[in-house]
Simulated scan of single mutants.
Amino acid sequence: MKAAVLSAFGSPLSVESVPDPTLGTGEVIVDVVAAGVLPYAADVLSGKRRHLLTLPVAPGAGAVGRVRAVGPDATRLAAGDWVLCDPTVRSRDDPLTPDITLQGLSARGDGGLRLQRHFGQGSFAEQLLVPTENAFPLGSVDLAHAGRWTALNLCLVPYGGLLAADLKAGETVLVSGATGNFGSAGVAVALAMGAGCVVAPGRNQDMLTELERRFGSRLRTVTLSGDEDQDRERMTQAAPGPIDVVLDLLPPSAGTTPVRAAAMTVREYGRVVLMGGVGMLGGDDLALPYPWIMRNSITVRGQWMYPPQANTRLIELARSGLLDLGQFDVTEFALDDAAKAIAHAADSNGRFTLTVIRP
């Protein structure tokens, strides 16, 4: 099969002929129809993001495709089925704290690197080997619109954070980083889950205006000034009532000041979920006041990715129409043009746009 291969960080991708994946028990081989390209993929491939990634590798995290073959322990999946491929691969020998690798993207620690030896190859390829539990049935998919379904791989990240926050219908959510790639998707997901209102702070005025246009009265935008106290007051005043949940999705380039300003808008007994990349490339750690957390009974938790069952629930949100995948604009590239796709993703910044490779 053909795959786009990264041989060294900073080197260009080369489209090569590589061995087809070999099927084993507990595994599925998928013919990749559409693979989404992250807006920061160029930073990963250059080494700037410092991701744990064993080279050479076919990058690409997640895909939409059709089952080619299943192992002997698969009882529901069959050849030809449309599936969403979840790139979050978990070890099976420690259900409490499994090691994790993100196919074609990164790993967590030495155990995650060990998983990469077998499941490390990503979706910028004609075929993809995934654990059986990582292939989620999609039902019928129009081949022409397969690329749009890759939005699920993007939306799964904020969805995982909102599940961790135990978001309930009618609650008010503040999405910190709402004008970014994952943040803007988080706005859409929160509203699809029934949030009564989403507060969307940011500095990108054009994107704030776009969010208002897309989501109407259930969205309240706030233009950040950089002054922590002033911004906290603005965000609090923008909400129609107490803020129940704060979800932080700010990228590594952001500092801790906007994270803290947003987090401390949450009401007594509120929940704060940290999912962004702040501090991952150095810089200050986030400092939250102990007395404020204790006296207001605040729940603060980190969340990396999402639980496996989130895939099925999010597919159902999309199938029902509550999460409208039609709001994402799709630009597609052939596998031979993978390098162009990565450059395009970086330029588009990903806000309600999908860059897709169609092998």
Rank of each mutant, 00 (worst) to 15 (best):
V330E: 04
A254I: 05
D336P: 14
I293P: 14
F215R: 02
R301T: 11
M264R: 08
A238K: 15
P289K: 01
L281S: 08
G326Y: 00
R232K: 07
T265Y: 07
L335Y: 07
G255F: 06
Q230I: 08
L317A: 00
A287H: 10
L317R: 09
R218M: 10
L247V: 03
D336Y: 06
A239I: 03
T236P: 04
L249G: 15
M275W: 11
T236V: 13
D229Q: 09
V272F: 07
N311M: 01
I293F: 11
M280C: 05
W304C: 14
T265N: 06
W304N: 11
N311P: 10
P291R: 09
A261T: 15
Y306C: 14
R313K: 03
Q237E: 15
P308M: 04
L288E: 10
M280V: 03
A310S: 05
D284R: 07
P308H: 12
L314Y: 01
Y306H: 05
G216S: 13
R260T: 06
V300K: 01
S253I: 00
T299H: 10
G241S: 02
G283P: 11
A287Q: 08
I298R: 12
L249C: 08
T299R: 11
A287C: 12
R232I: 06
V266L: 02
V259P: 00
D329Y: 09
A334E: 13
E233T: 11
L249N: 06
G279I: 12
R301M: 14
D227K: 01
T331V: 06
S297C: 15
P240H: 12
A339S: 02
P240I: 11
L322R: 07
V222T: 09
A310G: 03
A310W: 10
Y269L: 08
L325I: 08
G270A: 07
G226R: 15
M294R: 15
G321C: 03
V222F: 05
G270M: 07
R220V: 15
R301P: 03
V330C: 08
V266I: 04
I293T: 04
D284V: 03
V278H: 01
T256P: 14
L224V: 12
A334C: 13
M235T: 00
G255D: 08
A238L: 02
P240F: 01
E332P: 04
R260L: 03
G282Q: 11
E233G: 01
S217H: 15
R214H: 02
R220H: 14
Q327K: 01
P308I: 10
A239P: 06
G276M: 09
R232H: 12
V259N: 02
V245D: 15
V222Q: 10
R313H: 03
P308V: 06
A263M: 06
G326R: 13
G321M: 02
M305G: 00
A339F: 13
P307E: 14
P251Y: 04
A287E: 15
P240D: 05
K340H: 13
A262L: 05
Q237H: 12
W292I: 13
R214W: 14
R214A: 00
T312K: 06
G277K: 05
A238P: 04
T312F: 05
V246R: 03
R232F: 07
W304G: 09
